[in-house]
């Protein structure tokens, strides 16, 4: 089988260039630390990497949402705890006021304290979180939830919507509790009248009125109603507390998920240095062999002996 001189050179050169190209590719891999320098090197792997990156980013987005939820919950919790304390105090005052030993002027003094405490609760009910949104307005977050109208009654100006946020692919958490559920109205049963709903602040207002007018029945009623309101508030506190627990556990899950994705990503994307360096040495060896053998073989020619 004859091989022309041209062929000898061409073949050797082609092989050496191929090896050099391989070496260049390996060198880029080693320098960048990634198995895939360009997506076109391995399109399937590139697609997997893209999906993993997306999944990782989503976990981070969920973490941001969790932060927002947490801000709200913190503001809610502090307002609720303040209100709880006040309601306890109101209850104490109601118990004291319903004692028979008190006189009308005494009751009036208690009325002053109750009135002040009511203002404090209104202020707490109108809390805003750090982003300036009213916490207890439902979805009307730029509207003051409890406002005093011309007749002196405190009315709820918000709505009863829950605002929910995605905190994971499966879990949607509500950020708020509407004001009319936290400061829930109570049902008042009176003889001869249909049962009707009386708002939270009306109960306190009625308490003040009963104290000022020295009405024992009214004070007794207020005691019962304030107790009921206090129980409702505990329910709201428990709800906030449990949501904060969910936030914490969700945070842990998210960081686990992030770690998982990062590991997967690294497995697909990152270069196995041990393997790569070994391959590099092998390739370099074969290139050296090709070069030196070419140098020797190309010297051989009949013309040397003529």
């Amino acid at each position: 089988m004859k091989i022309s001189t041209g062929q000898v050179f061409e073949r050797a050169v082609t092989q050496m260039t191929t090896q050099q190209a391989k070496l260049a590719q390996m060198q880029t891999q080693l320098a960048s630390g990634k198995q895939i320098v360009q997506p076109s090197d391995d399109p399937d792997k590139a697609a997997i990497i893209q999906r993993l990156n997306t999944a990782y980013e989503r976990q981070e987005v969920y973490e941001t949402s969790l932060d927002s939820v947490n801000n709200r919950l913190v503001a809610e919790e502090s307002a609720l705890m303040g209100t709880d304390n006040i309601l306890q105090r109101l209850r104490e005052l109601a118990v004291r006021a319903s004692s028979d030993t008190l006189t009308a002027p005494d009751r009036k003094i208690i009325a002053i304290e109750v009135s002040t405490l009511k203002d404090a609760v209104v202020a707490l009910a109108n809390t805003q979180d750090i982003t300036g949104n009213y916490v207890f307005s439902g979805s009307m977050t730029k509207t003051v939830p409890f406002a005093i109208d011309g007749a002196g009654a405190t009315l709820y100006k918000g709505d009863d919507r829950y605002v929910e946020v995605d905190v994971s692919e499966q879990l949607r958490l509500s950020m708020n509790r509407p004001g009319n559920e936290v400061f829930a109205s109570v049902v008042r049963q009176e003889a001869g009248v249909d049962p009707r709903r009386v708002s939270f602040f009306s109960v306190i207002d009625d308490f003040v009125t009963a104290l000022n007018n020295n009405q024992t029945a009214g004070v007794q009623r207020s005691l019962a109603e304030v107790s009921e309101m206090s129980e409702n508030l505990s329910g709201s506190l428990a709800d906030v507390g449990s949501r904060m627990l969910v936030v914490d556990s969700q945070r842990e899950m998210l960081s686990d998920a992030k770690l998982r994705y990062k590991t997967l990503l690294s497995g697909v994307e990152d270069l196995d240095y041990a393997k790569a360096v070994t391959a590099l040495s092998a390739e370099m060896l074969s290139l050296e062999a090709a070069q030196s053998s070419f140098a020797k073989i190309s010297q051989l020619s009949l013309f040397n002996y003529m």
Partner: peptide, 27 residues
């Protein structure tokens, strides 16, 4: 398919801000 010039990360960013907006729509 690249991270910088491909569509994937622009889509990711779009949905990420949508999610952030959903946590505070009044902002």
């Amino acid at each position: 398919g690249s991270q910088t010039s491909g569509l994937s990360n622009a889509l990711d960013q779009f949905f990420a801000t949508a999610s952030n907006l959903s946590a505070d729509p009044a902002s």
